[in-house]
């Protein structure tokens, strides 16, 4: 009986390891290729491990594109989007969850309707707004529409609604105003929700592709995604360079993921339970 369950476990592990192999291999191949010379990468049959781990591809890419600048653009855009979006969303979410005011439901439903529409619908007019403001090819173009999120407001509202009402009532009787209650009492208590939204938004902003591709077309103002596309177009056969670019583009989020894996995974796991 014991041995039967052990062989069963062995098979489960084998099946899972096969899947892990498929999942991890592209990452491994990306990293290994990035340390090869162009000649070695294109050699037939290929080597698996580089003969010598060379960092040439990384130094080349930094001089070929305004890579440092692109990196900085991506960081700025991600940080600004995340901080402001989370702040705005949590403010609105608190009001929608806890304060009675005229037209509350009508406004809330109006905002929620944004969630039902695929993003392409907004793109052309959004582009024109940025154009009219003279902001094409600037940093603010990268983050402006993303500062406002119906999804984030909805997500955090759920968290605020789950907090006990007594806390707030006690604070109101003690003479705290709404701003103090929000900032000092409610916001700290919704930390898990805030963390979820921070992770979700940061990941989204870092990986975003179509919007930055449309608004910022000069190489100095790009973010990483579109810059990789340019790299691929300019250095068609310099695979180590392409892979070095890919490695540098994914590393920050992967590091963040390994630090906060519990929050990353739990945030996603909960999204289905609500549904």
């Amino acid at each position: 009986m014991k041995s039967k369950s052990n062989t069963k476990k062995l098979f489960i592990h084998l099946a899972l390891l096969l899947g892990v192999g498929i999942t991890v291999f592209p990452f491994l191949w990306m990293v290994l290729t990035s340390f090869k010379t162009v000649g070695e990468a294109m050699q037939i049959p290929p080597t698996f491990f580089p003969k010598k781990f060379l960092t040439d591809a990384y130094t080349q890419i930094i001089s070929a594109l305004p890579f440092a600048r692109v990196y900085l653009n991506t960081i700025i855009s991600t940080v600004v989007t995340t901080v402001i979006q989370v702040l705005f969303c949590s403010m609105a979410a608190y009001a929608f969850a806890r304060i009675e005011f005229p037209f509350k439901n009508a406004i809330f439903v109006l905002l929620l309707s944004v969630l039902m529409v695929p993003g392409q619908i907004f793109l052309i007019p959004q582009y024109q707004i940025i154009q009219k403001l003279g902001l094409l090819d600037t940093i603010p173009a990268l983050f402006l529409p993303n500062l406002f999120s119906a999804f984030g407001t909805f997500l955090l509202r759920q968290f605020f609604m789950s907090l006990p009402k007594e806390l707030e009532e006690a604070a109101l009787l003690d003479g705290c105003n709404r701003y103090q209650i929000f900032w000092r009492i409610m916001l700290p208590l919704t930390k898990p929700g805030i963390v979820s939204l921070v992770i979700f938004t940061a990941k989204f902003a870092w990986n975003d592709f179509m919007w930055p591709l449309i608004v910022n077309t000069s190489p100095k103002m790009m973010t990483l995604g579109p810059a990789l596309s340019t790299l691929q177009g300019q250095y068609t056969t310099k695979y180590p360079m392409q892979m070095a670019g890919a490695v540098m583009a994914v590393i920050p989020i992967i590091v963040l993921f390994f630090i906060f894996q519990k929050q990353f995974i739990e945030g996603v796991a909960q999204s289905g339970i609500k549904g």
Binding site: L224, I253, I265
Partner: peptide, 14 residues
């Protein structure tokens, strides 16, 4: 979970 956190553009290149 790893592939779903990484940038589609980068992964597509690989």
């Amino acid at each position: 979970f790893l592939p779903s956190v990484t940038m589609a553009a980068a992964v597509a290149m690989v």
